[in-house]
C-alpha cells in the first residue's frame, strides 16, 4: 500500500460521495436552480472519477460537453420557464413515491448482486494510461469511423431540430399565400407569459 494508492482511494471516496449526495440533491431539492448547480457539481465529480480511471480525454470531454454545454443549456431553460407555480396536489403521491423508491431499491440490490457475484476476468490487460487519447483517435478513424460520421449527422439534425422547435413565428405575412398572418396566433402579440398579469402594480410591469 503506497502513498499513491492511498491518495487514489481517498480521491475515489470523496468523488463518489459528492457524486451520490449531489445526485440525491438534484432529485430532491425543491428549488430547481439549486438542482441545476448541483448537477454541475455531479458532472465535475464524474469527470474526476474518469481521471481516476486513466481517461483524461473523456474527462476533458465530460467537462466541456456536460458542464460547459448541457448544464448551461439547462440553466437557460430554467431561466426561461421559471414561473413559480403551485402544483396541484395529486392523490396518492406519497404511495407513488414509496412504491417507486422500493422499486429503485430493488433495482439497486439487483445491480449490486450482479456486480459482486460475477467473476470478472481480473486482472485484465494493463491499462494504456497516457496513450489513451492516441488509441481513441485511432479507433475513431479506423473501426469506429461510420459511427463517428453518423454522430456528426446526428448533431446536425439535433441542431436544426432544436432551432425549428424553439423558434418563435414572427412572420407578418403567410409564407405560402402571402396574406397577412393572423396576429392572434403570433406569440409576440400576446401577453408575455412570464409577466404576472394579475399583479396590482402596473408600474412594475411597464418598466422596460
Amino acid at each position: 500500500m503506497s502513498i499513491a494508492s492511498t491518495t487514489q482511494q481517498i480521491c475515489f471516496a470523496v468523488l463518489s460521495a459528492t457524486t451520490v449526495v449531489g445526485s440525491i440533491g438534484v432529485v430532491l431539492l425543491p428549488n430547481i436552480v439549486y438542482s441545476a448547480f448541483l448537477l454541475g457539481g455531479v458532472f465535475l465529480s464524474v469527470a474526476g472519477l474518469y481521471l481516476l480511471l486513466n481517461a483524461s480525454f473523456v474527462a476533458a470531454a465530460q467537462i466541456l460537453v456536460y458542464v460547459g454545454a448541457v448544464n448551461v443549456l439547462i440553466l437557460f431553460a430554467i431561466m426561461l420557464v421559471n414561473k413559480q407555480e403551485t402544483l396541484a396536489a395529486i392523490p396518492g403521491l406519497l404511495v407513488r413515491r414509496l412504491l417507486s423508491g422500493a422499486v429503485c431499491a430493488g433495482l439497486f440490490a439487483l445491480l449490486l448482486r450482479v456486480a459482486f457475484t460475477t467473476a470478472w476476468a481480473l486482472p485484465g490487460p494493463p491499462p494504456v494510461g497516457e496513450e489513451a487519447t492516441i488509441r481513441i483517435g485511432e479507433h475513431l478513424f479506423t473501426d469506429y469511423l461510420l459511427p463517428f460520421e453518423l454522430a456528426s449527422v446526428l448533431l446536425l439534425m439535433a441542431m436544426i431540430g432544436a432551432i425549428v422547435l424553439a423558434r418563435r413565428d414572427v412572420f407578418t405575412t403567410d409564407v405560402i399565400t402571402g396574406e397577412p398572418a393572423d396576429q392572434g396566433l403570433i406569440e409576440k402579440e400576446r401577453t408575455p407569459l412570464l409577466i404576472e398579469t394579475t399583479t396590482p402594480e402596473p408600474t412594475l410591469l411597464s418598466k422596460p
Binding site: 457524486t19 451520490v20 445526485s23 440525491i24 438534484v26 432529485v27 455531479v42 417507486s100 423508491g101 422499486v103 429503485c104 431499491a105 433495482l107 439497486f108 445491480l111 449490486l112 456486480a115
Partner: peptide, 9 residues
C-alpha cells in the same frame, strides 16, 4: 448503480 437508481427515482 446508486447514480442510476437515483436517476430512475
Amino acid at each position: 448503480a446508486m447514480l442510476f437508481c437515483v436517476g430512475v427515482w
